[in-house]
């Protein structure tokens, strides 16, 4: 390899890096504020959907928690300064993926709504947990009734046919554990406030 070769290779790399870097920097500068804004907007919309009654800007983050070592958040929802419920984000270990769940409860700790933010369960079977007919089954359930059964039931959560593992994950590993955590976390906060 001659000195000319070495010089040429260096020049090659420098030019490619500089040109590529400039191009990427330009695109990043243009797109990143939009991406950031849209991410934030989408999150707010998702939360608002969970608690339609709450004031705009009435949903305030309470803190982080770590189900299955993943970052999740929980929120309090207020209307005219009064607490009307809580929203918890959680992860459940499903059949073939971690299911990212958002659910809201009233002040009586009965489930109001749940939503599946992300899941990769088996198409046609496990992924029916994302359909409204299954999510509706959670309305009004409290801690004791968040249990999966395999037959039609009004009291408990009826599993999606053929997808017991995914249904159980959402119900017991996801929402029930999330609710247990929320109750515990709220108690801790109260103790702290009193002190």
């Amino acid at each position: 390899m001659t000195a000319k070769d070495i010089f040429k290779i260096t020049a090659n790399l420098v030019v490619i890096y500089v040109v590529g870097g400039l191009l990427l920097a330009f695109v990043y500068a243009k797109t990143s504020p939009i991406i950031f804004l849209k991410n934030k907007q989408e999150k707010e919309e998702a939360l608002q959907k969970m608690m339609p009654n709450a004031d705009k800007k009435g949903i305030i983050k309470l803190g982080d928690w770590y189900p299955h070592d993943k970052d999740a958040e929980y929120f309090v929802a207020k209307k005219d300064g009064k607490i009307i419920g809580y929203i918890v984000q959680t992860f459940a270990k499903g059949y073939s993926s971690y299911i990212n769940i958002l659910f809201s409860v009233g002040t009586d700790f009965r489930v109001k709504k749940i939503d599946i933010l992300h899941s990769a369960e088996t198409p046609g079977l496990g992924d029916e947990i994302t359909l409204p007919y299954f999510k509706k089954r959670f309305r009004g359930k409290d801690l004791a009734h968040l249990k999966v059964v395999k037959k039609p039931s009004k009291e408990y959560i009826e599993a999606v046919t053929g997808a017991t593992i995914s249904s159980r994950a959402v119900t017991e590993d996801g929402v029930r554990k999330g609710l247990e955590f929320l109750i515990k976390a709220l108690k801790k906060r109260e103790v702290k406030h009193e002190q």
């Binding site: 191009l23 990427l24 695109v27 990043y28 243009k30 797109t31 990143s32 939009i34 991406i35 849209k38």
Partner: peptide, 9 residues
């Protein structure tokens, strides 16, 4: 990367 960022936005 350009395509990725543009699509994300």
């Amino acid at each position: 990367t350009v395509v990725d960022m543009v699509m994300a936005a």
